[in-house]
Design a protein around this nucleic acid. Structure first.
Length: 178
DNA sequence: TAGGCCATCTGGTCCT
DNA sequence: AGGACCAGATGGCCTA
């Protein structure tokens, strides 16, 4: 108790002085607490502002992702979770398409030999053709565009968003090469 | 009206 | 110390 410890010198004061000092100390403490409160408050407001900005940037990135996904104009805007799942499956579908194309076409002479290091810029096929990441079971691609799957079949992409895959070239597994 | 989605606030934790 | 990131809470809006 700091207040108790300080009271030892109070015995030398005239009567009434300790009470006045305590009162002053109380006012000072109230002032510091108020100052601390406003300081905390201003920090919080600043943090809120940063957080809001951060989320806006995140949403902007999500919008950018939406804009490159194949959706129809009359489709309602994909939700955040739909966008992420759709992108995940779309990437997988593209990589499958690439893989099948590589199976059908003889590789160009420049690509013969040891595979290039797995950097996205150098050799798309080598890093895209590893198959389904964690087996996402993209039903629309697996069953072909003519038989769009339902979300019950797939579990990854809602039926509405799956319709966007209809525009893809048929890349059914096991499709005969020309 | 219930449920889904979203924006915002908030406190905690980690990193620089 | 201050900023970034994260997850939980809350309230508003919309739709079935």
């Amino acid at each position: 108790m700091p207040a108790e410890a300080a009271s030892s010198s109070d015995a030398l004061e005239p009567p009434g002085a300790p009470r006045e000092r305590r009162r002053r100390r109380g006012r000072a403490r109230a002032r510091t607490e108020a100052l601390l409160h406003t300081l905390k408050r201003s920090r919080r407001v600043k943090a809120n502002d940063r957080e809001r900005n951060r989320m806006h940037h995140l949403n902007a990135a999500l919008d950018e992702l939406r804009s490159v996904l194949p959706t129809f104009p009359d489709d309602t805007k994909l939700t955040k979770i739909e966008t992420l799942r759709f992108a995940y499956n779309y990437i997988w579908a593209l990589s499958e398409t690439l893989r099948l194309a590589e199976q059908c076409l003889p590789p160009p002479p420049a690509f013969r030999g040891p595979p290039a290091p797995p950097s996205p810029g150098s050799d798309a096929g080598s890093w895209l053709s590893s198959g389904s990441p964690a087996a996402p079971s993209l039903c629309a691609s697996a069953s072909g565009p003519s038989s769009p799957a339902t979300s019950e079949d797939c579990g990854y992409v809602p039926a509405d968003t799956l319709r966007a895959f209809r525009g893809l070239p048929p890349a059914a597994p096991g499709a005969p090469c020309r």
